[in-house]
Structure formats: C-alpha cells, structure tokens
C-alpha cells in the first residue's frame, strides 16, 4: 500500500519534472532552474545532531558548545552551496547508449564539459531501471576539461530498454546534501538476443557467383592493406604488419561482389521464437567475426546483405525488437 503510494508519487513527480523542464537537446547546460537539492540521509542525521547540540548548549548555557553548533551549521550551509555550485553550469555535450546482449550489459556514455576554472568533484550518473537505481562511479572534472562517464546497464531480457531520464548527481563535499538534475533525452538501449545455439549456419551462399566465395579466417586471399577503420573486425587487422611498423592496418579481402549468406528465420522452424532469435544472433556474431557478408530474413523484416560493425548492429537490432510493439521512444 505504502509502496504503491510511493511509486505513484514518484511517477507524478517525474512527470511534473518533465513537464516543467521539457525534453532536452544536447549540449545541455545545468541551469539553476533545473537543479534540485535536498539534504541526504546523513545530512538529516547531522541536522538532528546539531539540534541536540543546540539544546544541550542552551540548557547548560555553554558558550563553546553553542559556538561549535553554529559553526557546524554554517559548514552545512556552505556545503549546500558547494554541492549546488558543483553541478551548476555543467555542460553535457554527449549522451549515447551502447547496446548489448541480453544477460550482459549495455552502457550509457555521457560526456561532460566543465567550462569553469574550478574542479567539479564526485559527479555520478544514475538511471532508474525496474525500481532499482544504477549509479556510476564518481567522476572528477578538473577545470576547463571534458570527460566521459560510463554507466553499465545490466540487460535482463531481449528488447528495448527506454531510458526515461538520466540523473546526474553529486554528494560533494561532505555528503550532507545531494544536488541533482534530470536529463530527458530520447535514449534507449537495445538488448540483443544472447548469441546462443548449436546449429551450424546455412552453408549455401546466395548471390551472383556459383562458387562459395566466403573467406574463412586464415585465408590469405587478401588483395591489399588499408588503414584501420572503426568497425573493422579484429580478424581483419594485419597483426604481423602492426608488429613491424606499429601502424594498424586492415586487410582488404577480394570478396567477390555479391557473395553472401542469408540467415533465414524460416530455417529454424521447430524452435521457440526466443531460441530462434538467439541462434540467429549467434550466426550474425560468428559471420561478423569471420568478416563475411550476410543478410537477415525475418518474418516481416529483411536486412540486406552487408558486412562490418554497423551492419552487424543493424541485424542484431532487428533481432532485438522482433515481436515487440515498436513504441516510439522519447
């Protein structure tokens, strides 16, 4: 009963905050209007202690106890200002999510910029997922620097995890107050189906040529080396050349154009949907690691053949949302 009331209140509160702040666009600066601050639990304890000291000091007309009480109360107020200032003017330059496999973790990456001269201490990123709050490590941001902070998100099930809002908070300096701000960004994390399943991938290659033109790892049939590009598979890297020259180079294969496989969900009849998706995911991952070209045929989706990391992610993303209502993410 009480828990339900609390949940309702929290939901109302979150809705109110979102209404008054609106959806954010990056880069976002933490203005005073969107900065919230309250005593933390230890701050409440400290206040109780100060009240006791005040009463004792008044009761015994003890000047030193009263002075120290007032001094510590002043420190608490100063610490409230410091906590506020620690967040005020903080710039959030980038917020991205990194998808992950179910039963593993995804990630939120937030980049901060500190435009002030002073150091901002102990910034934490947190996200509420399924009634638990995930909190990142503390980040320190020296004056005039930019840094990023990662927050690992455990992904329980396949599907889309919508990040309603991100909380950026600080306990600096004495842990007596917590200042925080909410960030509403259209972010979501996809949990890909776990790459599991023992079936071997379809052997047949589709495409314009008759022969199987898939390059297996260990093949030396590459034509030339080119500079490493993001998304290249580790197997593509010419490690021998790296050892010689210290430069990261990738092998460019002479894959005949159009040689590819299609992973078809129709070939996995007899398995439950989740197992089908996990098997497809395993195939996609394997094919990507081998540097192959592949496509994906799902019941109502077709991903055209391709290769590389973006392609892999496109395929896995398609697998992640199969059968789920495509709610618009905000």
């Amino acid at each position: 009963m009480l828990a339900r009331l609390r949940r309702t209140l929290a939901r109302r509160g979150a809705a109110w905050v979102k209404r008054r702040q609106g959806v954010d666009r990056l880069p976002a600066v933490v203005h005073a209007r969107r900065l919230y601050i309250l005593p933390s639990r230890s701050g409440a304890g400290f206040a109780a202690l100060l009240l006791f000291m005040l009463l004792a000091g008044l009761n015994y007309a003890n000047s030193l106890a009263l002075f120290l009480t007032f001094l510590l109360a002043g420190v608490a107020i100063v610490s409230m200002h410091l906590a506020h200032r620690n967040l005020l003017g903080l710039r959030i330059t980038m917020a991205q999510t990194v998808n992950g496999f179910a039963a593993q973790t995804g990630r939120i990456v937030i980049a901060f910029a500190n435009d002030a001269d002073v150091t901002r201490f102990a910034l934490r990123v947190s996200v509420d997922l399924d009634a638990t709050r995930l909190v990142s490590q503390a980040l320190e941001l020296p004056g005039r620097t930019q840094r990023r902070q990662d927050l690992e998100l455990p992904l329980a099930r396949r599907g889309r995890v919508t990040i309603e809002r991100i909380r950026i908070s600080t306990h600096y300096p004495f842990g007596l107050f917590e200042a925080w701000t909410w960030l509403h960004l259209p972010l979501s994390v996809l949990a890909y189906p776990a790459a599991r399943g023992g079936r071997s991938p379809p052997a047949a290659a589709h495409g314009g040529t008759e022969q199987l033109a898939v390059h297996r790892p260990g093949d030396d049939e590459w034509s030339h080396l080119r500079a490493f590009r993001d998304g290249d598979s580790p197997r593509q890297i010419a490690w021998a050349a790296y050892a010689r020259t210290g430069q990261l180079l990738s092998k460019e294969y002479v894959a005949p154009r159009g040689a590819y496989r299609i992973f078809d969900i129709g070939e996995l009849r007899g398995l439950a949907l989740e197992q089908q998706l996990e098997q497809l995911s395993a195939w996609v991952v394997g094919a990507h690691e081998r540097g192959e070209r592949y496509g994906l045929q799902l019941t109502d989706t077709f991903v055209e053949p391709g290769a590389g990391l973006p392609h892999r992610d496109r395929c896995l993303a398609a697998l992640a949302v199969v059968g789920l209502s495509m709610r618009p993410t905000q």
Partner: peptide
C-alpha cells in the same frame, strides 16, 4: 575553507542567538 566561511555566521549567531535562561534538564 568551509570552516572559515562558516565562522562569520557562527560569530553572528553566538552574539545574537537569544540565550534562553534556565535548564530544561
């Protein structure tokens, strides 16, 4: 620094916070 910043407040309160006479306990 926090203590130094708090000390003016402590002095003001020390001087002007009304000292209620008498013991409660």
């Amino acid at each position: 620094r926090a203590l130094l910043a708090a000390s003016p407040l402590a002095i003001v309160f020390f001087l002007f916070f009304p000292r209620v006479a008498g013991q409660f306990w």
